[in-house]
Design a protein around this nucleic acid. Structure first.
Lengths: 342, 342
DNA sequence: TAAAAATACGAAAACGATTAAGTAACTGTT
DNA sequence: AACAGTTACTTAATCGTTTTCGTATTTTTA
């Protein structure tokens, strides 16, 4: 409501003086500046962001691109946590966060057009098919971008340390005496690729003998598929002592199947999840999993993006890798002392 | 990039004509209108929202106020689903969604100031302390508002049908032969109040005899407190045959305690959750719960808010009550045939 | 056929800020 | 005392739209 014009009138100076005083220009005397600032505060002045945006091309608004209805999106705890972190960091630095959509009024537009239309200062992309041509177009559009769990060249990226995550898990399992480790990995993506590569590297280094039947694929969060995979593993002649799942949901799917067979966890077989969703802590038994630093990923993503926005030249387009930690639950048995079959 | 001015030049008409043609004014001939529209599409024109907002005071942007870091916020599946629904509906109608914060640059401002500053067309409030003076201020600010699970007078509200929810659950339990029903209710809020009132009404109507020890309070999502309450209920001389929990998390907390006592669900005691989060479907046994129509609440909230925004006079400030449904799981025993201890 | 009405367009003033360029009043230098 | 340099402002253009008020042309009416 109250504009620079009102303050100018009140203070008997020009609008330019008010604007400059408020924005820290040096050609305003300290006494006038203080007087204007006080008056502005007193009158409850806040700049009209539309006007600021129109003039300066800066909106202090960041767009986030999350998967749409079809996928899990917001209801995926991991991504929700990342977003929460990003939001907190952005807000603490004076930026707000808006969801990116691909609609304008009643017509379909591309993500990139939407971002241009809304003039976002930057964009955070997560939890989406990174091969989508629209996403690629957005990445190439020139607007400052940070991607979560995916690396494009020439944009900022924040990754969960999947290599270390899987390594930590496998080493933990090894330390608990496990040698026959099955790995049900997720669907095709760079995340899956990193984890799988890390798994094979560990296998080699630790000189484990993992038969090919121990490696299976399962869509993330697909509990039914996870159960089917688990069934196959249980039916093997040489059954693994532990199964690694792509995420905590699939782990639960596996656990349920295992228990339905009358087997107990971890006594008969150990299981390990991934993500560290809250349910793993209240499930009985609690599930050993890899807790990803989701909040830190969010804050890093927003923080680095804002640095890039505010200092376009100085910041390099780096990839930041955020480490997670093994969250030790009760779903892995220590088989060091007791000797299991062979 | 491309503005009305560019289109005007291309079409050899004035900017006024372009604007009017694009906005459906009647004083533009059909032939020019078509020509301008085609050119605009061809040039990839999209209006600069900042300029539109500056001129018309409409941003096509809706603010959402969700609980901040301290509370569960986005990672609460119920609210995440509501938000998802709201977002989908808003987007389908050409509105985008921005999180409300209380910061402007590095200084604290009120929610209301932030909304004024960003010129939101409307606001959705959910998952927050509705007694917060800042929230009250926002509600009184005059901006179109819809609240979720709370009713202020003179604003739109979307409520989960807590009365029906609890009634449906209790009636279901009754139909399964349960007469000794304990109710652990949530902390003080209008939601809790509605549910509790509904519970008492059912008790009266069904002529159940519920001792006061059967009614306990537990903070929402506090699994430890839920376990402690459950313990007390199990230790009663006259133990209930079923326990109702304030939400699915606390139900799981209760279930774990029950099972740690060597009791089985539902054979020894039945439990019922509330919300219908995804864990209830993969928990073993699956949990009977009340699935709230979270998505529908979100779409209704956004839809009604937009109606209010676009037709300020015609829409009344109503309260919309969204019904949920009992999601029948395996955690409630049918004790009609078999006779339990008295 | 002249006046009135309708049609189709344009000029220009907003909206609320920012900022380059200009200017008046001092201050300091020689 | 004259000049340049500094300080502290103001003027005015601008960002990209919308929208009021004109106005020229055509159509209708009497």
């Amino acid at each position: 409501m109250v504009s620079v014009k009102d303050i100018a009138a009140e203070c008997k100076v020009s609008v330019a003086t008010v604007s400059k005083a408020l924005n820290g220009y040096s050609d305003i005397s300290e006494v006038t500046r203080r007087m204007i600032k006080e008056k502005a505060a007193e009158m409850g002045y806040l700049p009209n962001m539309a006007a600021v945006a129109l003039k300066t091309k800066r909106t202090y608004n960041i767009g986030v691109l999350f998967a749409d209805a079809a996928n899990s999106g917001l209801t995926n705890e991991y991504f929700a946590t990342v977003l929460q972190g990003a939001r907190a960091e952005a807000e603490s630095r004076g930026y707000s966060i808006t969801f990116i959509t691909n609609r304008f009024g009643n017509k379909k537009i591309t993500y990139s057009e939407f971002c241009r239309n809304r003039q976002f200062d930057g964009v955070i992309i997560a939890c989406i098919d990174f091969n989508d041509p629209q996403v690629v177009e957005l990445v190439k559009s020139g607007i400052p971008i940070v991607t979560i769990d995916h690396v494009f060249n020439n944009t900022l990226a924040v990754m969960s340390d999947n290599v270390k995550g899987v390594r930590d898990l496998v080493e933990y399992l090894y330390s608990m005496g496990h040698r026959k480790i099955a790995y049900i990995h997720g669907g095709d993506s760079s995340v899956t690729h990193d984890r799988l590569t890390s798994f094979y590297r560990c296998v080699e280094r630790l000189e484990l003998d993992i038969p090919t039947e121990y490696i299976m694929e399962c869509k993330y969060r697909d509990t039914n598929k996870a159960a089917r995979c688990t069934k196959k593993l249980l039916d093997l002649k040489d059954r693994p002592t532990c199964i690694l799942y792509p995420d905590d949901f699939t782990a639960i799917g596996g656990i349920n199947l295992i228990e339905s067979r009358g087997l107990r966890i971890p006594d008969d077989i150990s299981v390990v999840g991934y993500d560290g969703i809250s349910y793993t802590k209240i499930h009985e038994p609690t599930i050993t999993t890899l807790l990803q630093g989701a909040t830190e990923m969010g804050t890093t993503a927003a923080g680095k993006l804002i640095e890039l926005i505010e200092h376009p030249k100085t910041t390099l387009r780096e990839t930041y890798v955020i480490e997670g930690n093994v969250l030790i639950g009760e779903s892995v048995k220590d088989i060091n002392s007791k000797r299991k079959n062979v």
